[in-house]
Amino acid sequence: MTTLTKNNEDKLVALASIAAELHTVMNVAYGVSLAAKNAKVISAQAGEKGLGFQPITDFIDEISQLAINGVSTINDNALKLSKISVHEQRSYDAYQRFQSVIKKNKDAAYIGSLAPSMVRIENHMIDSFKDFKNSMKDLFVLLEDMDKHMLSARAIASVSRVVTSDTQEFRSKLDVVANDLDDAAIFIKEKVSDSYEHLDHVKNLTRKHA
C-alpha cells in the first residue's frame, strides 16, 4: 500500500470521526434549545418577577441555535474535506496506473500521447491539495468558535443561577435549565476538543505528504 493511500485512509477515518463526535452534539444542542424555550415560558409565567431572567433565556436559546448551526457547518466542512480526499485518492490512483503504463510500454508508438492526461492529473492533485488545506483551516476556525461559544454558555449558566436565586417561586425549574445548559456546554466542549484532536491528526497526515 502506498503512503498516500494509507494517509488518505487515515484522513477519511479521522474526518468521519469528527462527524461522529458532532452527531451526538447535535442531539444535545437540540435538547438545550428545547429547555431554553421551556425556560422562556416559565419566565413569561413569572410575570414581572421573571423579567430579569428573560434576557438569559433568550441568550440560552441563541447559544443553542449557534451550536446547532455551528455543528451543521462543521459537518458540511468535514464532508467537503472527505470528498476532496476521495477525489485526491482517485486522481492519485489514476496517476500511478498511468505511470505503470509508461514504465511497461516504453516502446509503444503513441506512449507520448498520454502526457497531457498526466499533466492534467498533476494539476488537479495540486489544486485538490490547496483546496484541502484551505478547508482544513476553515474547520479549525469553526471548532475554535464553537469552543468559545461553549465558554460563554458556561458563563451564562453561572449568571443564571444567581438570577434564579432572586426569583424564589421559579427557582427550582430555572435551576434545572441552568444546570442542563452547563452540562451541555461541558459535553460539547469535550466533543469539540476530541474533534480538534482528529483534525490535528489530519493536519499532520497532510503535512507528511505535502
Binding site: 503504463v101 511497461k104 510500454n105 503513441y110 500521447s113 498520454l114 497531457p116
Partner: peptide
C-alpha cells in the same frame, strides 16, 4: 491502456 497506445493515440 498500454496495449492501445501501441495502435492509437490517447486523443
Amino acid at each position: 491502456l498500454g496495449a492501445i497506445l501501441h495502435h492509437a493515440r490517447a486523443d
